[in-house]
Design a protein around this nucleic acid. Structure first.
Length: 565
DNA sequence: ATAGGGTTAG
């Protein structure tokens, strides 16, 4: 039985089961169930559990971990709880079961329950610690994860992988890369799965050259066709601003899964190639691959970035009617974004009114940023008020609202919002931009003089500013949010925005003709955006800027976003 | 004989 199911011959396994003595069936069922779970066939695994029970065979200590794992990966908390209760009633204890339960409860966001099970375990092994580490990481408790990782004396390759991938997920790309090389130094040979953590770190950082080295190593070992590695590569190239490479990886894969398709659609969407993204989606359908909820998120985002409103609306409607996927709050917020971006506020409002649940903060956020583009104060204020109730600690709301007031010349109002922000002790997330030169990542903050070549960069930037003004660029001081009196000083503050510094540094360091790829942790400011439009024409270089939301490709005086972001 | 901790898409 194990021979059959480990190689995917489930039909032969089922046949074998038919002719088997009753006394042997429990073990056979267990082997089958575990086989299904390892192939990701969770529905089949749970179906087999039902069949087993209805044939009068009770689950045993070998069945539970497989079943719990199936529940954990498909988010079936209720079913998992029932199995847990069943095991408790029968007084079946094993630490295989406990380990899988820790993972189940963490994956379903039941932190207290997960921790309670972990604490009650009287014998813990490496798997238990890995389960806890993974729980910390996936719930965003990265500080605890780092401590635990340091304290763990015994580690295996999974320990490293959980930590590296977790660092990348929480935005610690540099630490992820450092840890990956530590891991190799300690003698762990990375498998294809392990490489994906390092590649994801490069994606987070936008470290194109670093990532290419991993790609080369994968080819050398023969892992480049592995799904997990190749899928990570698609995202890495896209997040580094090189969509063509992302597409090339996709095309050269021997076979793609739904993750690969989703990654490619997302890649095209982020770069504003909405029509192509939609084309790839249609192709995916033709290939008979079922779209999932993430496919729809990526397709809707792509439509939004490219202004394909009616098409996006159609896709949204097809989710439920054709594919039986009920849209979640995340899908609705994409829809609102889509409608607002083309000024269809009445439609957006009626969608919000007819929501099957209470509007979440992400829905109000989509409405608010749509209002910013069109200067729709009335609706914007309503959205902002809701956000102040729901997430008063979120700095973005204050910034957006204050920006909107400033853009319409309502300075007292803008100041009032900033005062409110101060009074409530809300801190603005520090803006930061970075650029990769050779394989080194250089990071800059606003007014940052800590970089060894800061003086030269600032001087160069001042010159660029003067030159751009000769070509018609006018600094837009509406984007200065500090309380600065004189206009001259305001202009000084604009020139030191981190994305401008990083771009200037790139111009100084990178060979002529090479594209400048800069990354920013927040959304880009309107003045910088305008500045780069002029710059791209004057210096005849492609400037690629990745901000928190999307990519901007500045080429010859135009931006791919069409001034909507 | 059969079991637990992991990967890639937003």
């Amino acid at each position: 039985m194990t021979g059959y199911v480990k190689n995917g011959f489930f039909d032969s396994g089922l046949e074998l089961l038919e002719g088997m003595d009753e006394g042997m069936k429990l073990v056979a069922y267990n082997a089958l169930i575990s086989g299904y779970v390892h192939r990701g066939l969770h529905r089949e695994a749970l179906e087999m559990v039902r069949r087993m029970v209805s044939n009068g065979i009770e689950l045993d200590a070998f069945t539970y971990p497989s079943v719990i794992r199936a529940c954990a990966t498909s988010g079936l908390l209720q079913f998992g709880k029932q199995v847990h209760a069943y095991a408790l009633r029968r007084q079946d204890f094993s630490f295989h079961l406990d380990n899988s339960l820790v993972s189940l409860y963490y994956k379903c966001n039941k932190f207290v329950e997960a921790r309670a099970i972990f604490d009650k375990m009287r014998a813990k092994d490496l798997v238990s610690w890995n389960a806890l580490l993974s729980g910390y990481v996936s719930s965003g408790h990265i500080g605890e994860a780092k401590l635990l990782f340091k304290e763990m004396e015994e580690k295996n390759i999974l320990t490293w992988m959980i930590m590296i991938s977790g660092l990348a997920d929480n935005g610690f790309g540099e630490e992820g890369l450092r840890l990956f090389s530590c891991m190799r130094k300690e003698g762990f040979e990375p498998c294809d799965y392990a490489f994906s953590g390092a590649i994801k770190s490069c994606a987070v950082l936008g470290a194109y050259c670093n990532g290419q080295q991993f790609h080369a190593q994968l080819v050398k070992i023969g892992f480049d066709s592995s799904l997990s590695a190749a899928n990570a590569l698609i995202t890495k190239y896209a997040k580094c601003g090189v969509v063509e490479e992302a597409r090339r990886v996709f095309i050269t894969m021997p076979c793609q899964d739904s993750v690969s398709w989703n990654a490619l659609i997302a890649a095209l969407g982020q770069h504003g190639h909405g029509a192509e993204a939609v084309g790839v989606y249609e192709e995916m359908l033709k290939e008979g691959i079922k779209p999932d909820r993430i496919t729809f998120l990526t397709v809707l985002t792509a439509c939004s970035h490219a202004g394909l409103v009616d098409q996006g609306r159609e896709y949204f409607d097809s989710m439920e009617t054709v594919y039986c996927i009920p849209p979640g709050a995340d899908h609705y917020s994409r829809l609102i974004d889509l409608l607002c971006r083309s000024g269809r506020f009445t439609e957006a409002e009626s969608v919000i009114k007819s929501l099957p649940f209470e509007p979440t903060s992400q829905i109000w956020e989509a409405l608010l940023s749509g209002c910013r583009v069109y200067g729709n104060m009335e609706l914007g204020i309503i959205a902002a008020e809701k956000l102040f109730e729901l997430i008063p600690e979120h700095d973005g709301t204050y910034m957006l609202l204050s920006n909107m007031y400033a853009a319409t010349g309502k300075w007292e109002e803008a100041a009032r919002v900033r005062k409110l922000m101060r009074d409530r002790g809300v801190k603005k997330e520090l803006a930061c931009s970075w650029i990769e030169v050779e394989t080194q990542v250089h990071k800059f903050l606003v007014d940052d003089t800590s970089h060894p070549e800061a003086e030269a960069v600032y001087k160069y930037l001042q010159e660029l500013g003067k030159e751009m003004r000769r070509f018609g660029y006018v600094p837009d001081t509406n984007f200065v949010l500090h309380d600065v009196e004189s206009d001259g000083h305001k202009q000084d503050m604009l020139i030191t925005h981190s994305e401008k510094i990083a771009v200037a540094f790139g111009l100084m360091k990178l060979p002529p003709g090479r594209a400048i790829r800069v990354f920013k942790n927040l959304r880009t400011c309107g003045d910088c955006h305008n500045f780069f439009i002029y710059l791209s024409r004057v210096v005849q270089r492609e400037i690629v800027l990745r901000d928190r939301k999307r990519f901007h490709h500045f080429r010859n005086g135009e931006c791919s976003c069409g001034n909507f972001w």
